[in-house]
Design a protein around this nucleic acid. Structure first.
Lengths: 195, 195
DNA sequence: CGAGTCACAATACAGTCGCAATGTATGGTC
DNA sequence: GACCATACATTGCGACTGTATTGTGACTCG
């Protein structure tokens, strides 16, 4: 081999395997339960291997968070089939809400990291960028809907906040899934018309 | 003294002193930095004293969270001067948002505990109860406003979610304070009329 | 066919954790 | 003044943490 890549194993793949273990641990037992040994046990490998692929715990955490964020983003984009702005926005936001077990897991992880990122600003940048991206997209769609009397930027920010809050309440079981969807639909009807 | 109260010191007061230290630590360095020793150091006392007033760390955490929730609730009630439903709701929700440093601190703590409570359900009950209480109040006010076409329960849930999300984005500096207030006002105008 | 790099495993280490046990000083009760 | 519960302070312990170090096969390259 000429390039400096690894010889027989796929680094990325291994790191994602470990990050999956991080995610499961964080979601089921909290971020504080995420230690190198626990991650290794959860993934069924030795702690030495974890250290081999992540030189430090911070590196592991950052990678895991990035992976979760990427997955959410990818799934959101996959759900965005170009129909009406209304459907586009609705599908996108529904994809972000924790309405099934895997998304609950992911949102759980994001929440844990969000609380953690308030202390470690290096983690927050990824979150912020991803949110800004989605806000811009939402604003475009609201603008395309062309309802007069609504400021697209403002509406997008409001929608994003609403979805964040709904996700929060879904995670803590304060809201049933239908209620959350209904609340979102009501808001969409107000902003984008009853179409 | 006849009653079984403590002799010279006020238990409640001491516990609140320690819980204040917990809150400062949680807000500035994260929940994971909250240890008996750190709390003791932050409060300027010995770790033995912390143990004297809280038999276990869990007890300390639960008390601290309850204290924060109570403070937020008390301040909200204090802000509720009976004028129009619109003003009532607006003042209440504005009081919940992290718009100054102390409220940032408190919201920060609530967020940290919220992430933690997903794992320890015993902590979540207090949060849930407090939220349900506020939701009922909001629904009453929306009903009193009597805008037709809006379901009060649904609108209250939506408002609560919106405020939660706005708080989240304020904490992570994704939103400026004026933007958050503007988003809230826009939503209130939609729900309660432009009054 | 050495030489070397990669992928991992195992262990050691210094530090911190929650918690329990113990010591002591101080006030109230009789 | 004897007695005792309260209010701390101190110390120690076992478990656990992240990280550094070292060892060991396997595979590649010259």
């Amino acid at each position: 081999m000429v390039c400096g890549m690894s010889r027989t194993v796929d680094h990325r793949e291994r790191r994602e395997l470990l990050a999956d273990a991080v995610m499961r641990l964080a979601a089921t037992r909290g971020l504080e339960a995420v230690s190198l040994r626990h991650v290794a046990a959860e993934a069924g490998v030795s702690t030495g291997m974890v250290q081999h692929y992540f030189r430090t715990k911070d590196e592991m955490m950052t990678f895991a968070l990035g992976m979760v964020v990427d997955r959410i983003r990818e799934r959101s984009q996959a759900a965005a089939v170009p129909t009406s702005p209304y459907r586009l926005v609705r599908d996108l936001l529904l994809e972000v809400l924790p309405l099934d077990e895997t998304r609950r897991l992911e949102n759980h992880v994001v929440l844990a990291f969000l609380a953690y990122a308030a202390v470690k600003p290096s983690l927050a940048s990824g979150l912020r960028e991803s949110a800004a991206q989605m806000r811009a997209f939402l604003a475009d769609q609201v603008r395309a809907a062309g309802r007069d009397g609504v400021d697209p930027e403002r509406a997008a920010a409001g929608l994003l906040a609403l979805v964040d809050g709904l996700g929060l309440q879904l995670l803590s079981r304060q809201l049933a899934e239908e209620e959350a969807v209904a609340a979102l639909d009501a808001q969409l009807a107000l902003l984008l018309g009853p179409a």
